[in-house]
Amino acid sequence: MGAKIAAIEYALPIREVTNEELSLEYPEWTVEKIFNKTGIRSRHIAGSDETASDLACSAAEKLFALGRARKSDIDFLLYCTQSPDYPLPTTACLIQERLGLPTTCGALDFNLGCSGFVYGLALAKGLVETGSADNVLLLTGETYSKYINAGDRSVRTIFGDAAAATLISGDGATGEAIGPFVYGTDGAGAKNLIVPAGGSRQARDSRTAQEHRDESGCIRSENDLYMNGSEIFTFTLKAVPMAISALYEKSGITAESVDLFVFHQANKFMLDTLRKKCQIPEEKFVITMENIGNTVSSTIPIALKDAEDSGKLKKGMHVLLTGFGVGYSWAACMVEW
């Protein structure tokens, strides 16, 4: 039985942080300069007692409330996050209980960032097409803001918090509506996007909490998110075009026959550069991050949902998805909408 994306909904925290607010904190960066460098005007930031799983549950409840899915039909829950509620238990188990999903439902977390949605689709497709599950609820949820030092403008201007809920179901069709996939992993880049302290390798203590100012004037400690933007950029510039070429070869699809390209919404400058390098026409390329920011694993489902709502994404279209970032980890796939 062929797996298909049946529905997507997403949830954003209520609080918005605008470029005007950030510009007051970083006077050397004007409102327009922040927008010109990132393509972002505002981003939503979770409240102090609001977790990624809270957002994920809100997104899932929207899906159920709109009648796009029934709780009793969900037989597998996949939760992609790097912001779990606890080191253990698995947050997906807590979400199963909160959403009231059947206790016969399988549930697991997986820890990926910007590539997570595409990997989640691959896992869901595997579950459905092997007959292991009929209706997979794929949740992506992230609150990077909680890892970000208030003094680190390099990441604070880019990242926003969000969650998305995607239903992947068997549709009885014989054709391949999700896939094929290509994957990539290079752990040599792990140090370039990392929260160094807080896991088993390095516990948080008074030393890791010490803040320092880097050569760009950004302040952070080892308890905070660190991103080497130029290294991430050059990795992306190399890995993504190669992955897309590999996907064309594997799928037999030509660039011209792809109707829409939905890339991880990293930042506008990176997307514009990738679009030109991959020779993708502007009208086939989705950029939808102006009032949301980079929401890590949720950017692709949010972009798909917005593109569908705006009429840019229509039934039957062939869509190329690619996610890339922290790990390094990347993946690309085709989806028939």
Binding site: K37, S154, S216, G229, S230, F233, T234, L237, F269, T273, K276, K277
Partner: peptide, 15 residues
């Protein structure tokens, strides 16, 4: 001249 300028220069030369 900062990390953003560096990225822009890399993108220009690449492109």
């Amino acid at each position: 001249w900062n990390s953003l300028a560096l990225i822009s220069f890399i993108a220009f030369v690449d492109g």
